[in-house]
Simulated assay, not measured.
Amino acid sequence: MKYEAVVEVLLKDGVSDPEGVAILDAVVSLGYGSVSKVASGKLFRLLLQAEDENSAADVVSEIAERLLSNPVLEDFRVRDLVSSNS
């Protein structure tokens, strides 16, 4: 069965995020003073073949941990995992 997964990777709390700070400065300078924090990150969409949803989730988590994120600096979250006809 085919599955589509969306993986979100963000810096861990306490890790410096210069891109997020620069975006926040720009947002505030555009007049959006109600925004107090911006966190930059990465989003990955994977299409894979697996026997079932649990197997797909295991594979996606392993890929995210070993390749898509740096476990020292970043956390990842499998945001969506759905069966796909694509």
Rank of each mutant, 00 (worst) to 15 (best):
N85R: 13
L73M: 13
V60L: 01
N85M: 07
Q49H: 09
R45M: 06
E62P: 05
K42S: 06
D13F: 01
A50I: 02
G14E: 08
S29K: 14
Y3H: 05
N85E: 15
V82L: 12
V15S: 07
E74N: 03
E62Y: 09
I63S: 05
G20N: 02
L67N: 06
E74W: 00
S61F: 00
G33I: 05
S83Q: 10
A56L: 01
E62W: 07
S69W: 01
A56V: 05
I63V: 15
D25Q: 11
S83R: 14
V21F: 08
A50F: 00
V6G: 09
L47G: 14
Y3C: 04
A56M: 01
F44S: 11
K12F: 00
L43A: 10
A56Q: 04
V6T: 15
E65W: 06
R77W: 01
V78H: 01
K2G: 03
E19Q: 10
V78E: 04
V82I: 15
K2Y: 08
L47S: 15
S16T: 15
P18V: 15
R66P: 02
E65F: 07
A22H: 09
G41D: 06
L48V: 03
L24K: 01
S36Y: 06
A64W: 01
D13M: 04
Y32N: 10
S16P: 05
D17Q: 08
G14R: 05
A5G: 03
S36I: 02
R45V: 12
V28M: 09
V35I: 15
D80S: 11
M1V: 14
I63M: 10
K2C: 04
S69L: 03
E62I: 09
S61Q: 11
V6K: 14
Y3F: 13
L24I: 02
S61P: 01
E8Q: 09
E62L: 13
G33F: 07
A57F: 10
S55F: 00
K42N: 06
R66C: 08
D58A: 15
G33W: 06
V35Y: 11
L47P: 10
E8A: 02
S29G: 08
E4I: 07
V15T: 10
K42V: 08
V7H: 05
V28A: 12
A57D: 10
D17G: 08
R77H: 10
Q49C: 04
K37E: 14
I23N: 07
V27M: 12
R66E: 14
V6S: 10
L48I: 04
L24E: 00
L81N: 05
P18R: 09
S69K: 04
A64Y: 00
E74R: 03
S55H: 05
A5W: 00
E4C: 03
L48Q: 08
D80K: 08
G31F: 10
V78P: 02
P18M: 12
D17C: 07
N85D: 15
V72I: 13
E19P: 03
A56W: 00
E74K: 07
V6Q: 15
D52V: 13
